[in-house]
Amino acid sequence: MKRKKGAYALTGRHLVRHENQHDNDVSNMLGWFHKHFKRVSSSPHEGEPEHRNPPSTSFARSPSPFPSALKPTTNPLQSALTSSMRWSRKYDVFVCHSSEDTDIEEAVRLVSFLESSPQSLRCFLSHRDACPGSAIATELCQAVQDSHCRALLITPNFLQDNWCKYIMHQALSEPMSSRNIPVIQNLAFSEYPLELKYIFYIDLNKNTNGYTLVSQSVLNYLEDQVEKEKALECNTTPPARE
C-alpha cells in the first residue's frame, strides 16, 4: 500500500509538472498564433488586390516611367516670343497714328501697354523712334517692313492725314492681312475706310479691353508664324537613312 501510495504521490508530482509544462506550451503557442495572425492581418491576403490610398501627388498616376510633372512641355506663347522668326524683324508692332495731340496720347498709352510685361512687345512709335532729320517717308516705310504687325489707330484725324493714309496703303499692299490690326476710335462705321471693310478691327469705344485685344492679335500672329515655320521644316527635312 505504501508503494502504491508513493507511486501515486510520484505520479501526482509528475502530473503537476506536466500540467505546468502544458500550460507553458499552450501559452507559447497562443503567443505565436497572436504574432502570426497580427502580421498576416496587417498585410494583404494572398490573391487579393492590395488597397492603398493613392499618393497626394500625380506622379503615381503617370503612365510613363517618368513623373508627368517633369515632362518637358512646350508653351506656344513662350516659343513665339523666343523664336528666331520673331527676332528676324526689328519690331513686333508698328503703331501708325496721326500727328494730332489726342491721337499721339492714345498711341503712347497703347504702346506703353504693349511694351509692358509679361509680353514686352517691341513697338515702333514714329515721334519717338524716327531719327530727326532723316527722310521720313523712307524711314517709315522701312519701319513698316521691319515690323511683324501694324496697328493702325484710325480716327477722324487719321483719315485727314496724308502720311497716315500713305502708310495704311503701304501696309495693305501685302496680301497677309492678319499683320494689319485696325484700331478705330471716335469713328462712325460709315466713315470707315473701304480698304479695311473686310478686315477684323478693334473698336476702342466699345471694348474696354481693346489694348489687350491688340496685344493678343500680335501674339496670335507670332504663334501662327512659328507653327508655319515648324511645319515647313518638317516638310523640307530629308528622310533618315535606314
Rank of each mutant, 00 (worst) to 15 (best):
E46W: 06
S120K: 14
F33I: 13
T11E: 11
N186V: 03
M29N: 15
F158Y: 10
T11F: 13
E46P: 03
C234H: 12
C131V: 04
H18E: 11
M85T: 13
K165A: 03
S68N: 08
I184M: 10
L159Q: 03
L77Y: 02
S173K: 06
R150V: 15
M176C: 05
E233I: 14
S88G: 12
S84R: 11
N220P: 01
P156S: 07
S173R: 07
D92I: 00
L232E: 06
A171N: 02
A143Y: 02
H22R: 14
L204M: 15
L10W: 11
D146H: 05
E227F: 14
I136W: 15
R86V: 05
W87V: 12
P182C: 07
K2E: 08
E191G: 12
L232W: 03
S43Y: 09
D224K: 15
T138E: 13
S99P: 04
R17P: 03
S173I: 01
S116Y: 08
A171Y: 00
Y201H: 14
A135H: 14
P67Q: 12
L77E: 06
I167D: 04
N75V: 00
K38S: 15
K197P: 00
G6V: 10
I181Q: 01
R13H: 09
I154D: 00
L196T: 06
N157R: 04
T208M: 08
S41H: 13
A188M: 10
E115T: 08
A137M: 09
D203R: 07
V226A: 00
S190Y: 04
P193V: 07
C234N: 13
F200I: 12
